[in-house]
Simulated scan of single mutants.
Amino acid sequence: MAIRFRKSFKVAPGVRVNVSKSGMSTSIGRKGLTTNLSKKGTRVTAGIPGTGLSASKLYPNASNKQAEGTGLGFGGWPIVILIAVTAVAWLVLRS
């Protein structure tokens, strides 16, 4: 059994600092569209809030080319774009 540790602190509207066993990262965004900056690289996640449906892509740092995303590759980008557009539209219509 693996033990995990993660704590998140809100520092400003739409900005969070995340602390875990493996280090720190910063998340910028809100439900539906988030960018996370960490030592592994930049991860962009788009989702439709309340559905559990999301897609994520990791852009590794130059010093960390071994990091991998979710396996979407280039062919998965239409899904990420579709989910991002749907999430933004849902957030705009909800406001």
Score class of each variant (00 low, 15 high):
72 L>N: 04
55 A>N: 03
43 R>A: 02
85 V>L: 15
92 V>N: 02
76 G>D: 06
11 V>F: 03
90 W>D: 15
59 Y>C: 01
34 T>F: 02
34 T>L: 09
61 N>E: 10
87 A>P: 00
22 S>Q: 12
18 N>P: 02
21 K>R: 10
61 N>A: 03
24 M>N: 06
93 L>M: 10
59 Y>M: 10
58 L>W: 08
51 T>P: 08
49 P>M: 01
24 M>G: 09
17 V>I: 12
3 I>G: 09
71 G>H: 01
58 L>K: 13
72 L>W: 02
83 I>E: 02
22 S>N: 08
35 T>N: 00
7 K>S: 11
91 L>M: 14
15 V>A: 01
17 V>Y: 00
68 E>Q: 14
55 A>V: 14
45 T>N: 05
73 G>H: 05
64 N>H: 13
55 A>T: 12
34 T>Y: 04
4 R>V: 08
61 N>C: 04
28 I>S: 00
35 T>H: 03
35 T>I: 11
78 P>I: 09
9 F>R: 08
42 T>C: 05
64 N>V: 07
62 A>E: 12
74 F>L: 11
89 A>M: 11
22 S>F: 07
8 S>R: 15
48 I>Q: 02
75 G>W: 09
40 K>C: 00
53 L>G: 09
64 N>D: 13
18 N>Y: 03
59 Y>Q: 09
52 G>T: 00
30 R>K: 12
64 N>E: 06
56 S>I: 12
17 V>F: 00
94 R>L: 11
7 K>M: 04
70 T>E: 15
69 G>S: 10
89 A>I: 02
84 A>N: 04
40 K>F: 07
64 N>K: 13
23 G>S: 02
5 F>W: 12
4 R>C: 01
77 W>C: 13
25 S>T: 06
89 A>Q: 08
44 V>G: 07
83 I>C: 05
58 L>I: 13
91 L>E: 15
65 K>D: 01
80 V>H: 10
74 F>N: 10
5 F>L: 08
59 Y>K: 13
65 K>Q: 11
41 G>D: 03
88 V>T: 12
32 G>Q: 00
7 K>T: 08
52 G>W: 10
51 T>G: 03
9 F>A: 08
15 V>H: 03
94 R>K: 13
62 A>R: 15
80 V>T: 13
42 T>V: 14
26 T>Y: 08
36 N>R: 10
21 K>M: 05
82 L>M: 11
53 L>K: 15
66 Q>W: 12
17 V>P: 04
86 T>Q: 06
45 T>R: 06
23 G>F: 04
61 N>R: 15
